[in-house]
């Protein structure tokens, strides 16, 4: 999967998320079929589900929280299952959670199998404005820098305050200020380094050849999504 052209992977990811988001709030059975793409991505991309869930641990609770109040708002009974009433709110809650979960998984598959440079290259190919692509790239770089700085500051603090549990609330203001200032300094150095190596506001990414499989891949998936979305396949 890593060898596929990034444009194909980006298109599949975007089309998948749009398709998933477009399902009706009660279309749970069709939505379950859309799991075929994440399952394929994790198997063929040789990705670890455990590691994937660990990396997405911050965003997944938010996704699960979406629609949690639906059962209280929509009490219209759609059907009885083993004598238990299944309300519209319950179905729409699960649908919303699945939509969020699938979208996060699709984005994870894209990120795990494609480098940021390749994603940005693909974005440029579909004519996303240059400024936006550069901003995405720089944000990606600077997140790393900020993470490193935060780690250094936290380590230095812990080593000199071993008896404390975490960082004392009185120190937060100073530390955050220091963190931002140091991150800005480092970001400036990186930017200077880029300027000194001929950076003129645009990343030059080498063109990649499009192999037949890279064309078949998005076409096949987009067709599958259309078939599932149109309701031609219904397992329930």
């Amino acid at each position: 999967m890593n060898r596929l052209h990034p444009l194909g992977k980006l298109l599949v990811c975007v089309f998948y998320i749009v398709t998933v988001a477009s399902f009706h709030k009660y279309a749970l059975s069709q939505l379950i079929l859309m799991a075929v793409y994440p399952v394929f991505g994790f198997i063929v991309g040789e990705l670890s589900l455990k590691e994937g869930l660990y990396r997405m641990r911050l965003i997944l609770p938010l996704v699960v929280f979406v629609g949690i109040f639906n059962p209280f708002l929509d009490r219209n009974v759609l059907q009885y299952s083993f004598g238990i009433p299944i309300t519209g709110g319950m179905v729409s809650m699960v649908t919303l959670m699945l939509k969020g979960f699938y979208s996060v998984l699709a984005a994870y598959i894209l990120i795990a199998t494609t480098s940021i440079d390749e994603i940005c290259y693909a974005l440029r190919l579909i004519h996303v404005p240059r400024v936006m692509v550069i901003v995405i790239m720089l944000i990606y770089r600077y997140f790393g820098l900020m993470g490193n700085e935060a780690n250094r500051i936290a380590t230095a603090y812990k080593l000199r305050a071993p008896s404390q549990n975490g960082i004392h609330y009185k120190a937060w203001g100073t530390l955050v200020g220091q963190w931002l200032l140091r991150s800005i300094d480092r970001a400036e150095m990186v930017y200077e380094s880029m300027l000194l190596r001929g950076f003129k506001g645009d990343y030059v990414i080498p063109r990649r050849k499009v192999k037949p499989v890279s064309m078949i891949y998005p076409i096949a998936w987009i067709l599958i999504f259309i078939v599932i979305r149109s309701g031609l396949i219904n397992i329930f």
């Binding site: 440079d117 480092r186 150095m189 380094s193 000194l196 190596r197 950076f199 990414i205 080498p206």
Partner: peptide, 27 residues
């Protein structure tokens, strides 16, 4: 003119060494 920074981490900002080394010539 080429400038090698005191802090090498600031100089290396792409994912792999070869990408980073290629950054200047590509530009």
């Amino acid at each position: 003119i080429g400038y090698v920074f005191q802090d090498s981490e600031a100089q290396l900002f792409l994912s792999t060494i070869e990408d980073d080394v290629a950054f200047g010539p590509r530009n």
